[in-house]
């Protein structure tokens, strides 16, 4: 694994592939710069959810309910935004809702010694039914809910294109999570609690509080991602707005082997494909040739292939997914 020459070669090949790919796209009439914009937008919720889940799983708690959190916070985010008349307040509202769900799931994992996979799936199923109910209860309309466009989180306009400030925040959060995990005492404790909770317990550090902290933080970050979907990207809410992104974020986590920076890279890869799919679906000359349905499959198929290629080489914390029982 640790051969620097091979790694450099890998980067070089990846760079060449990207350049060749961009050239091919230009030939097809797709603009690489608009693709980058779309890709970064699509990356943002994936990165936020995946980075939070990396920390959470490092501490030994698995949350496969990310999809449900994205779905619920997309709605509550818009509700908060309309309440305060401000998109940023919507993101904060999403973070609060996400934190609440993350805390609840953490509490039943830590204190209820729940089967975390089943509890997480329960959350997903709950969201599947709760969100349409919520849409009707809040706005008396079951289909799409559009909100005034001034509630959108404003984009930053730069010479290289338009970017959302949330995207920049997501990148910063990934870097901060990396620093937290590998350069602070709290980070060492988080890693230790995933590997050897009994040692952390003997050292006098609360295992339950650490795990509650990471799962609440993970929920909050995922909640920002969920609120970002309508408020920073789509401009409306539908009942299937998350469209499997919570599970793609889980794939990022697996791909990254719980490293926040690698999770960011994976989120960019999957986000780029997602952006590519949306770009292909609307580009004249291309959209007629490739049926919309196959373009829509692209993000999911890519996820499947990439995960199949990298998996097996990753190592996960010893107690991931298992409750800690003091002996």
């Amino acid at each position: 694994m640790r051969v620097p020459g091979r790694r450099a070669l890998g980067y070089l090949l990846a760079g060449l592939a990207l350049a060749g790919f961009s050239y091919a796209l230009e030939r097809f009439g797709l603009q690489p710069i608009s693709l980058l914009e779309a890709g970064l937008l699509a990356m943002t919720p994936l990165a936020l959810a995946a980075v939070g889940e990396c920390l959470n799983e490092k501490a030994g708690v698995v949350n496969i309910g990310l999809e449900g959190i994205l779905l619920i916070t997309a709605v509550t985010g818009v509700w908060f935004a309309e309440l305060f008349g401000n998109g940023t307040m919507g993101l904060i509202g999403g973070a609060l809702t996400g934190a609440l769900i993350g805390f609840a799931l953490g509490a039943i994992s830590v204190y209820g010694k729940a089967d975390q996979i089943i509890a997480g799936m329960g959350l997903n199923i709950f969201a599947l039914g709760f969100v349409p109910f919520l849409l009707v209860s809040l706005w008396a309309f079951p289909g799409i809910h559009l909100f005034p466009s001034e509630l959108m989180v404003p984009r930053l306009i730069t010479p290289w294109g338009q970017f959302s400030p949330v995207t920049i925040a997501a990148i910063l959060i990934a870097v901060l999570a990396h620093l937290l995990l590998h350069h602070t005492v709290l980070g060492f404790r988080i890693k230790a609690v995933g590997e050897k909770p009994e040692a952390v317990d003997v050292a006098g550090v609360r295992v339950d509080w650490l795990r509650l902290f990471t799962s609440t933080l993970g929920g909050a970050l995922c909640g920002v991602g969920g609120a970002f979907l309508p408020l920073g990207w789509f401009g409306g809410v539908v009942k299937e707005i998350s469209a499997g992104r919570g599970f793609i974020a889980l794939a990022c986590v697996v791909f990254a082997g719980l490293e926040p920076l690698l999770a960011l890279a994976a989120a960019f890869l999957f986000g780029f494909v997602d952006g590519l799919a949306s770009a292909v679906a609307v580009t004249p000359g291309v959209k007629e040739r490739i049926p919309f349905y196959f373009v829509s499959m692209l993000p999911y198929a890519t996820t499947l292939v990439v995960v199949a290629l990298v998996i097996g080489r990753r190592r996960f914390p010893r107690t991931v997914g298992r409750p800690y029982v003091r002996e």
Binding site: K113, A114, A119, F126, L128
Partner: peptide, 23 residues
């Protein structure tokens, strides 16, 4: 007037409850 999809939310809550052996 309660949207029938609430049944699915109840389904999810039942699953979450079943996941907690401590109960």
């Amino acid at each position: 007037g309660v949207l029938s999809e609430l049944v699915r939310a109840i389904n999810g809550l039942i699953v979450i409850t079943l996941a907690v052996p401590e109960l």
